[in-house]
Design a protein around this nucleic acid. Structure first.
Lengths: 228, 228
DNA sequence: TTTACAAAGATAGTATTACTATCAATTAAA
DNA sequence: TTTAATTGATAGTAATACTATCTTTGTAAA
C-alpha cells in the first residue's frame, strides 16, 4: 500500500490549482529547485518557464505573481510540518516530550520524505529557513492575512502553544514562545551557517546545538522553579 | 552646547560617502522616508531621485544599488542603537538591570532623537522592524559578511552577550540568546501589529507586553533556579 | 585671475522584469 | 461529434535596474 499525502491549499493562493495538472505540479517542483538554487530574488517566471519547457504566460495562469507562489510553497511547508508534528507526537503522553520532539522536527535537516512526488521537502525546508519570513514581511501582510494566506503557520503556532500550556497552564506567553521557537529554529540555523558570531555554535555547525539552545530556552521559561 | 552624533560607516557600504555632501544626506533622509512609507520592495532610485530633485544617475554615484542602501541605513541603525545602549547602561552596576534596560531600548518605540539632522530615528526603527532581516537574508550574505557589512549588528550582539555572561558566567548560549532577544524584540512587535495570533498581546498592542515576554524569557534562561 | 577639478545635472540608452493580450493547436468531457 | 478547457506560441508594454556620456557649476589651488 502506498499512501500519498495531499494537502488542501487555500484557494486564494493560486489562480488555477497547481496540484491538479501535470504542468501545475511541474511549476511547484521546479520553482522549489530554482528558488533553492539561486534564491527568491533572482527567481523569475521566465527562468522557471524555460526550465520546464513552457512560457511565462503559462505560469501566470497558475499564479498571480512570484510572491504568491512563494507564499504557496511556504504555506505548503507549514501544513506539511503540522502534519508531521501530529504524526510524531500522536502517541506521546507527556507534553514535555512532545515539545522536545517538535523542537527536534523544527530544527533538524529534513531527509526527503517520499510522501509527495512533486515536492522535495528537504529543499523546501532550506528555502523556508532563508526565504520564509519574506512571505509575510511585506506591506500587504494585512490584506494577505485577511485572505487567510498564513493560516497554516498560525495553526502550527497554535498547536505548539497548546502543548506549551499543557506543560504549564500558568505560563503567560504560550503563543509568543511558540512563534519564537519556530522563528529561532530557522534563524539560529541560518546564523550558524552564515553569520556564525551571532550564535554559540558557529564552529561546530550542528543542528543538535540549536536544539539544545531551544530546549534550554523553552524549559527554563516553562519551569522556572523546578529545574536544576 | 550642541552635540551631534557622527557614526563612522564601513566604506564598503557606499561608493561616495553620503554624510559628506548635501545631496548624500538628502539621499539618506528621503530614502528612510520613502522606504518607511511604501516598503523596501516598492522603493526605487527613480522615485527617490524625483523626490529629492536629482536623477537616478545621481543616486548611483553614492550607492551601488538599493540593497546596499538598505544595508547602509540598517547598519547605521545598529550602530546608533549600540551607542544608545552604551549611554543608557554606562552608569548601571547591576548586569541584570543593564539587560532590562537593553530589552526596553530594543522593544520600545523610538521618539525621534534630535541627535542627527538627516536621520529620523523613529522611522528608521520602524523600517528595521519590518525590513531589517532582508539586509542579510540574501544569497550574498557570505560575501557581504566578508566585507564586514554586518559588523554593527554583530557588535551589538556581542555587547549584549557579554552582559548576559556577567549575569550568569555559566550560561551556555550567550550569543544565541542575544540574537534571539534582538530579533524577537522586532518580530514580536511586528506580529503583534500584523499577525496578532502569533503573540499573546494582539488585542492590547502594547510595547510593554513584548518587554514583559522578553524579560521573562531571558531571566528564566539565566537564572533557572533562583526565580520565584 | 585663470586653471582645474570634483560634484552634480541632463539626457540617452540597454537588458531584464513583471506583467497582459491574442490567437491557434491540442486534449478531454458531454 | 461538438464543445469547452488547457496549453503553446507570439507579441507587446511599462517599469526596473542599471551604464555611459557630456555639460554645467562651484570651489580651491596655481
Amino acid at each position: 500500500m502506498e499512501l500519498s499525502l495531499q494537502i488542501k491549499m487555500n484557494e486564494k493562493l493560486f489562480i488555477r490549482n497547481p496540484e491538479e495538472t501535470e504542468l501545475g505540479r511541474e511549476i511547484i517542483l521546479h520553482s522549489i529547485v530554482l528558488i533553492h538554487k539561486a534564491g527568491f530574488e533572482s527567481f523569475t517566471f521566465k527562468k522557471l518557464a524555460e526550465k520546464i519547457g513552457t512560457t511565462e504566460a503559462g505560469i501566470y495562469r497558475y499564479f498571480e505573481n512570484k510572491h504568491r507562489l512563494l507564499v504557496y510553497i511556504v504555506s505548503w511547508y507549514w501544513s506539511w510540518l503540522e502534519f508531521k508534528v501530529m504524526v510524531h507526537t500522536n502517541n506521546i503522553q507527556s507534553p514535555e516530550i512532545k515539545l522536545k520532539k517538535i523542537i527536534e522536527i523544527l530544527a533538524t535537516q529534513v531527509k526527503d520524505d517520499v510522501n509527495t512526488k512533486h515536492v522535495d521537502e528537504r529543499l523546501l525546508h532550506e528555502i523556508v529557513r532563508m526565504e520564509g519570513s519574506k512571505a509575510y514581511l511585506t506591506r500587504h501582510v494585512t490584506d494577505d492575512n485577511k485572505q487567510r494566506l498564513f493560516k497554516p503557520y498560525k495553526d502550527l503556532c497554535a498547536t505548539i502553544a497548546a502543548i506549551i500550556l499543557e506543560c504549564n497552564p500558568k505560563y503567560k506567553y504560550p503563543r509568543s514562545l511558540s512563534s519564537t521557537i519556530i522563528e529561532m529554529a530557522h534563524y539560529q540555523n541560518f546564523f550558524m551557517h552564515n553569520l556564525p558570531s551571532l550564535t554559540d555554535f558557529g564552529n561546530v555547525k550542528d543542528d543538535r546545538k540549536v536544539i539544545g539552545f531551544l530546549e534550554d530556552l523553552v524549559f527554563a521559561s516553562l519551569f522556572p522553579v523546578k529545574r536544576k
